[in-house]
Nucleic acid binder design. Sequence first.
DNA 1: AATGGCTGTCGAAACGTTTCGCACACGCTA
DNA 2: TAGCGTGTGCGAAACGTTTCGACAGCCATT
Lengths: 346, 346
Amino acid sequence: MISLRDVAKRANVAVSTASAALNGTRPVAAETKQRIESAAAELGYRPNVLARGLVSKRTRILALHYPAPASGFGLTEMQFATGAAAAASELGYHLLLSPDNADPLEELRYLTGTGLLDGVLLMEVRLDDARVELLTAQNVPFALIGRTRRPEHLWFADIDFARLGADVAGHLTGLGHRAMAFINHTGAAYAGEYGPVVRIGQEIAAAAKEAGMSYADGFDADTAEQGRAALHDLLDAHPETTAVTVFSDQAAVGVLAAVEDRGWRVPDDLTVVMVLTSAQVAAMFRPQLTTLEPPSLELGRRGAQMLIEQLSDETAGPPPGGELVPCRLVIGDSSTTPRDDKGVRA
Amino acid sequence: MISLRDVAKRANVAVSTASAALNGTRPVAAETKQRIESAAAELGYRPNVLARGLVSKRTRILALHYPAPASGFGLTEMQFATGAAAAASELGYHLLLSPDNADPLEELRYLTGTGLLDGVLLMEVRLDDARVELLTAQNVPFALIGRTRRPEHLWFADIDFARLGADVAGHLTGLGHRAMAFINHTGAAYAGEYGPVVRIGQEIAAAAKEAGMSYADGFDADTAEQGRAALHDLLDAHPETTAVTVFSDQAAVGVLAAVEDRGWRVPDDLTVVMVLTSAQVAAMFRPQLTTLEPPSLELGRRGAQMLIEQLSDETAGPPPGGELVPCRLVIGDSSTTPRDDKGVRA
DNA sequence: AATGGCTGTCGAAACGTTTCGCACACGCTA
DNA sequence: TAGCGTGTGCGAAACGTTTCGACAGCCATT
């Protein structure tokens, strides 16, 4: 391994001078600097991150922490990682994957204690998330992808759920629908602590009301079987429904099956819209489903950028609050005008 | 930060003794050891990874290197990362995400020069991959997910393509099919350098021949539109075909559309089988498609495990060759017996 | 009673950086 | 000519570990 000593020797300067020249940390005569840079280039010198980090207390390494979800990751979740890694890389940082096995907090406590990390990016954030308190207490810089119940003093990037609700309602009323329903995730795996499930339920309800639509919910589903049953129950209870919005892509499979059970067709007899499902996945259904595609890559990117910004900002000013990113409406073949504008089927 | 000095002081021993006791690196009297461990626990001591790595040359950090795919990651690719991270974590290692922006090699060269890494895990391996030579030359331990053209002397984990071909042929002949076709990825994005595309084409052809089936290929497709056209062309050229195997899930969308164009139905008029698509995705099609699900998580796991094994093995014996992992056949509603066992449709 | 081999502990060096006080040689001003 | 800032460069200390040679006891062997 080529060390700074080797470079210094070749350039006939002291190690400290070589360091200063290479980092621009204090002025070095132009000619000397040139000589040092040449020597470094010729030798193929790469600074040792460990030694540097040991003294400077900065490693330019971030951890991405994700509590392993019971059901394995979907495409959406993993895109966070891709986006965050790309943004970090562009800014000269690296991203360390930190899955937690048993105890979410222990892993985090360990990692932050080792001096390896400059900051932490939290995924799968719950409405009340113990990790936030831990990191705050330990004074470790962090940012969230998603947000807690009260994120006012935190750095976070999350989906703009209010806008999402408005977009769904707008799309449907634009087509002439007056009665919609929403099949949410049950959120069972998170005991009602999962932000997207809670927020999306609230915001879609609010937007439907705002738009003057009749609205039904409470028929939640995570699997195809549940989705099928949910749609039947839903239509039995609210026969006026002309448009259904679905969160879970598995449930959507069941919804389409239930439509078929009834001898109906999508979109003629029922408009179906997915929410927080990527266009790539929505395109695999037949008919291709309209979806509000989550800005997963962008959220990952913004999370990493915010964290790095926070690290660069020496002054550590007052927390700026977070950033909300809109979803993209991708219209498929599953939404159209309702067959009967009286809202009742024969 | 609590350092080893603090622990040593509290336990009334020398720093070196504390180090030895905590690492078990050389015998320490039981009572002394006990005292040191208590002190460490009481103080909440966490060893500094940087300092340790600086002297021991071992950081227990692995990099996962992936050339950014133009189209963003699919579920399959990301599962590699998840699996690798999980396996690494279980073995006490961490995984650093290393996307490459511009120059794939420069990033790698930089990373390995910094002393931060114990080894590298390579994803998206091409048949001739420059990264392999670079790492070999630099004497950096590495393992592949996938494999090069001649992987005899390398550590790798890859799909068992021969078995995959046999499984497809076996499934179809078992149902009574005698004439199959295969719609591959075009592999255009990789200029024919992408292992799975090449190997799967060879192995399915070989297995079909072995099973005594008639076989057609050369109608490749990456998108829905291409898939649709491909199936039409294919059936025009080989009307005896009763079963089609498809690699690209996007192309499968088009294949189903083409079947509908003809007024046919799956599986009654045509059996459709996907290959290297997750069951989760295959279940979104209607009818649910039969698929050979890639063992993505397992490949990630095995890759990480092999790399770590290689690192632990002081002796660095002769390279052991790689490991081939089979796919899982998940039967959907898209495969059945051919309608006409003479292999000709009316 | 002297020798030799253990066992257990210590102190110092080393890993490759950054940081910081200090020294030296200028050229300028008083 | 003395004094003083300024531009450059040097050397040593420090970061928190691991590693390794040295050595003090102690018991067993001669």
